[in-house]
Design a protein around this nucleic acid. Sequence first.
DNA 1: ACCTAAAATTGAACAAAGTTCAAAAAGGAA
DNA 2: TTCCTTTTTGAACTTTGTTCAATTTTAGGT
Lengths: 196, 196
Amino acid sequence: MAGKVELRRAALRTALIAHAKARITADGLKNLRARDLAKDAGCALGAIYNVFGDLNDLVLAVNAETFHDLGASVAESLSDAPQTPTDQLIVMARAYHHFAAQNYHLWRALFDIERAPGEAAPEWYLAEMGRLFAYIDAPLSVLHPNHDAEQRTLLTKALFSSVHGIVLLGLDEASSGVPAPQIDEMISLVLSQLAS
Amino acid sequence: MAGKVELRRAALRTALIAHAKARITADGLKNLRARDLAKDAGCALGAIYNVFGDLNDLVLAVNAETFHDLGASVAESLSDAPQTPTDQLIVMARAYHHFAAQNYHLWRALFDIERAPGEAAPEWYLAEMGRLFAYIDAPLSVLHPNHDAEQRTLLTKALFSSVHGIVLLGLDEASSGVPAPQIDEMISLVLSQLAS
DNA sequence: ACCTAAAATTGAACAAAGTTCAAAAAGGAA
DNA sequence: TTCCTTTTTGAACTTTGTTCAATTTTAGGT
């Protein structure tokens, strides 16, 4: 039984990720507690640190799944085959909005996680980000065939950041707090102008 | 000497805000420590809680000043009297960007502060936000004189949120991390399109 | 001046919460 | 079974915000 330990650890890892996901979904990232997770998973407190370097690593694992699901949601939104490139951008942005609204705490954890100063984001984060950017880039290539790659990259980032900002502030009840239909309207407003 | 205690407390309050500001500027909000502040101000640990309800209240006081300074920076950017309404929007957005870049940790503290769930933002926050929105609204009224108030409010929020998103992700070294000139370029790109 | 009661200040103690590590348990080879 | 290695455990350590009993200061009355 060579891989016995590895199997047990892999199972614990999976369980811890699932429980952390549930805890974050219910109470948000800042209410995640190591002791709660140990109880949830029925393991010792220290066992968490046999599987993950620290709690942050565990949250990173949750975030990887969340980011993957987010990418899948955005990609799936295109399956309704909207006609124009602008429509495609709008549909994707709304999918982003709806994912963020439906998975608010998990989505916030993507950005609220503590990151070591000066350290780059993990590779999977950049990879998923690149995938999202590729989705945006495609319609932009149709709209602006004569832009060079650098121009399009800039426009892609600007578009994503704008939508992200609209969703971020729109979903923040405490400050602006905008009803969902108005968020969608703002998205349409910005994208229909920007993509022309 | 009726107001002796009040004077001492007011002085401590001012000192604590100043020291907290310095600490946040240097190390960021998440590295702010009650014991450090007590040492900085030469007061007892518990004295902080004679003046503020908790550390969060102290950070709120810092944020009030930061937000006020931010508003002043944006307002001052208009004193160069740019010609067109679009130019005014771009100048203000760049002022927002430059304030955020120059006061990164203080600016982040505006949004990273812990807020009680379901509780509205403090009145000064909404008031300063309203002031910022008014600055944006003015040029938009010139550009779109036939829009009603609701339309303009939506466009104002969309514009602000977009610029905020561009600055937020642009200044986040770990993820996108965009050089300052490119951030300004993205701002121009979005605003020149959106305001037309 | 002195005394005294109320008010304010202090900092040691308390209560989380993440992380570590010596000890115990489990695993595996001879 | 025995002995050594690996793994797991959870009590203990550390850090940090917050509290509160004890001390100091203040202010009024004599």
